[in-house]
Design a protein around this nucleic acid. Structure first.
Length: 228
DNA sequence: GCGACAG
DNA sequence: ATCTTGTCGC
């Protein structure tokens, strides 16, 4: 188990500039070369939802068999919300709960899919990248909307892609995961390359817009009947 | 100054 | 993200 960054997640004190500066430092620790177990045995999906009008943050973690894509384990963590949503600083708000959910899993997955961006972020440290650096785990970000960057419309077929570019950098891939559906924004988080990320997401797709890890976590994180 | 802005 | 039912389309 790789060491986690001791200063990767300080307490929120309202200092936006300080948080951005920390992101720039942490971004340097992101590894964009493929460095995960092959063959992949287990995958995990993570997502966050809110209860009590936002007072409680709920994180869902789902461990899946990498071959069958069947869920092996499901966990939910709840903590008091510590920070408001601020575009670009999402990870500081949601990561605490995600780390709790990860700790509830019986084993560390070979690869993690997080709902949100990896390096497709203003300072190249979206929640999937932050999660990866904080835990040392290989990760990929799967977002439903662009945060930063531009791209042309990908083709209509499942698997069609377009590069997401920001300030001259290719920071992710816009992927049509299902015909007639808005494409997903895929970007590496940590220990995964820009070129490999789309393929890894593709192999997790069945007949839904979202890849199984994220889809299952999404469902758990936002189900009303799961609230209490 | 005017938009854009993950979840 | 969340508040919320039905409804149009494949």
């Amino acid at each position: 188990m790789r060491p986690s960054q001791i200063e990767a997640l300080p307490d929120w004190d309202g200092d936006v500039a300080a948080a951005r500066a920390l992101q720039q430092r942490l971004a340097r620790q992101v590894e964009l070369r493929d460095d995960f177990a092959l063959p992949l045995r287990t995958l995990a999906g993570f997502d966050v939802g809110f209860e009590d009008a936002g007072a409680t943050t709920r994180a869902a973690a789902v461990l899946l068999d990498a071959d069958t894509l069947q869920p092996l384990e499901t966990r939910i963590a709840r903590i008091a919300t510590r920070m408001p949503y601020i575009p670009g600083l999402l990870s500081f708000r949601e990561l605490p709960a995600l780390l709790e959910a990860l700790a509830l899993l019986s084993r560390r997955p070979d690869l993690v899919f997080v709902d949100g961006h990896g390096i497709a972020h203003p300072r190249r440290l979206g929640i999937a990248a932050h999660f990866g650096v904080a835990t040392g785990l290989p990760s990929i970000g799967v977002a439903k909307k662009v945060l930063v960057g531009h791209h042309v419309e990908p083709g209509p077929q499942r698997g069609d892609v377009a590069a997401l570019v920001d300030r001259g950098d290719i920071i992710g891939t816009v992927l049509r995961s299902k015909p007639r559906c808005r494409p997903l924004v895929v970007s590496p988080g940590h220990r995964v390359s820009l070129a490999s990320a789309p393929g890894l997401v593709l192999r997790c797709l069945t007949h839904y817009r979202l890849p199984e890890p994220t889809r299952l976590a999404d469902r758990l994180a936002s189900r009303r009947d799961e609230r209490r």
